[in-house]
Amino acid sequence: MEGLGLDLPTFVGQLVSFLILLGLLVYVGYKPIRKMLDERANRIKESMEQAEATKQEYEQAKVAVQEQIGKAREEGQAIISQAAQIGDRLKEEARGEARKEAQALVERARGELERERDKVIDDLRHEFVDTAILAAEKVINETLDKERHRKLIEQAMEESTTFKEN
């Protein structure tokens, strides 16, 4: 053992040195590195998850946009057809109204005409009566025979301006 160099103080000294190294490395090396590696792993995991989430979000957004576009298209189509319908209806209504108005106009014109005609007839009748009265007066004034009577009426008729005009 002497030749081998086995020696308790040296052994203890080396042991203490080694334990110091072990302790130092644990606190200065292994633990901070472990922490750093774990942190990095976490960070990478997080960012990958984030990327995944972003991708999913993007996909969802894409789908949503597509949906919205589809919906908008449908809506547009609906609006257009509705507008066409409304247009048709309006046209129909306008046509109806125009017809009605025209009818009313015609009605009115007809009424007016009839009234005018009535008035003319009325006037005519008045005038005729007046003329007849006049003739009668004349007849009464000159006692007449049948022949003379007729002549008188015809004369009166001829004299009446209204009959001539008509």
């Binding site: 081998l4 040296t10 052994f11």
Partner: peptide, 10 residues
Amino acid sequence: DVNVPLMLAV
């Protein structure tokens, strides 16, 4: 130095 390997072995 045999003390060092022995120490590590212990």
